[in-house]
Amino acid sequence: MAVRPITITGEPVLHEPAAPVTEFDESLRELVADMFDTMDQAPGVGLAGPQVGVGLRLFVYSWSDDDGEAWRGVAINPQLWQTPLVPESVDELDDELESEGCLSIPGERFPLRRADGVLLRAVDIDGEPFEIEAYGWLARIFQHEYDHLDGLLYADRVDYPFAKAISKVAKKKGWGVPGNTWMPGLDHPEG
């Protein structure tokens, strides 16, 4: 399989809803294998179709929890339900526990409040349905990748002053316009 270039914020495919997957064929298998190779090389814990320039509703994920349980798979045409958010007025964002990054905003991390629990329903590469109830970091990964399928980046969800900081970084690095990508294994991800 192959490593694909990762699109950077500003590429139109990242900012519009992705289309459902309708063909479960060899080209889909190749895309999924390439996405795993790309995510692993980056390295990342998740990667959505739009991040490799493909506007389809699928993402791959790979993460191990503190107990050593490994989670690795593909979610095609997912649906996601979230537990309610804790009101932001209750406690401050935790820079360490609530910061996340994105391969399409390479090298940057900012805090973002996410739901602690989710229910993911999707189909696998063979079109077989599955369901995962996830909490903590796996829930965060699923929410992050699912957002990509709706044309959202985590930068679209962060609040001031972090949104302003992301905007400054994007402007400084020439992002926010079509045509910017980076190649895992070849490029330095910070642009």
Results as ranks from 00 to 15, higher is better:
Asp159Ser: 15
Ile8Asp: 01
Leu58Val: 09
Glu128Leu: 11
Cys102Asn: 09
Ile132Gly: 01
Pro20Leu: 12
Leu47Val: 12
Asp34His: 04
Glu69Phe: 11
Ala2Asp: 08
Arg113Leu: 05
Val86Ile: 15
Leu186Asn: 02
His144Leu: 00
Gly174Met: 13
Gly117Pro: 01
Gly117Lys: 12
Gly185Asn: 02
Trp137Asp: 07
Ile125Pro: 01
Arg4Leu: 15
Ala115Val: 01
Val123His: 03
Asp124Ala: 07
Pro129Phe: 03
Gly53Val: 12
Thr38Glu: 03
Leu149Gln: 10
Leu149Arg: 11
Gly185Val: 07
Asp95Ser: 11
Pro184Leu: 01
Cys102Leu: 13
Ile141Asn: 00
Met1Trp: 03
Leu97Ile: 03
Gly55Gln: 14
Ala139Pro: 13
Asp25Ser: 14
Met183Asp: 02
Val54Asn: 00
Asp126Gly: 10
Glu92Gly: 02
Ala170Glu: 11
Ser104Asn: 10
Asp159Asn: 11
Leu138Thr: 06
Ala19Cys: 01
Met183Asn: 05
Lys173Gln: 12
Val74His: 01
Thr9Lys: 09
Pro161Asn: 08
Phe36Ile: 09
Gly10Cys: 09
Ala70Cys: 10
Val74Leu: 09
Thr22Ala: 11
Ser167Pro: 00
Ile141His: 00
Trp71Ser: 13
Thr181Met: 04
Asp34Cys: 10
Asp147Leu: 07
Ile8Trp: 04
Asp67Glu: 15
Ala170Asn: 07
Leu85Glu: 08
Trp182Ala: 07
Glu131Leu: 06
Arg114Phe: 07
Gln51Gly: 10
Phe130Arg: 05
Phe24Tyr: 15
Val158Ile: 15
Asp159Leu: 13
Ile166Glu: 04
Ala122Gln: 06
Leu85Arg: 11
Val118Glu: 00
Met35Ser: 06
Gln51Ile: 12
Gln143Glu: 12
Leu103Phe: 07
Arg114Leu: 11
Leu14Asn: 05
Lys164Glu: 14
Pro129Trp: 03
Pro43Thr: 03
Ala134His: 08
Met1Pro: 15
Gly117Ile: 02
Trp182Gly: 05
Pro84Leu: 10
Tyr154Gly: 06
Tyr61Ser: 12
His144Cys: 02
Asp91Glu: 14
Asp25Pro: 04
Arg113Phe: 07
Ile105Phe: 10
Leu97Asp: 14
Phe36Arg: 09
Val54Ser: 03
Leu80Trp: 05
His148Gln: 08
Arg140Lys: 14
Val54Gly: 02
Leu56Met: 13
Asp126Val: 00
Gln82Ile: 07
Ala163Thr: 02
Lys173Val: 03
Asp66Gln: 05
Val177Leu: 12
Leu103Gln: 06
Val74Ala: 10
Leu80Asn: 06
Pro111Trp: 13
Leu103Thr: 04
Leu93Asp: 10
Glu128Gly: 04
Ala19Leu: 12
Lys164Trp: 05
Leu112Val: 15
Pro178Ala: 06
Pro5Lys: 11
Leu152Ser: 05
Leu152Met: 11
Ile132Thr: 11
Glu100Met: 13
Leu120Asp: 02
Leu28Ile: 07
Ser27Val: 05
Phe59Gly: 10
Ala163Arg: 15
Asn180Phe: 01
Pro161His: 11
Val177Ser: 10
Leu119Ser: 04
Asp116Tyr: 08
Gln41Phe: 00
Arg72Met: 03
Asp150Arg: 05
Ile76Met: 06
Phe110Ser: 04
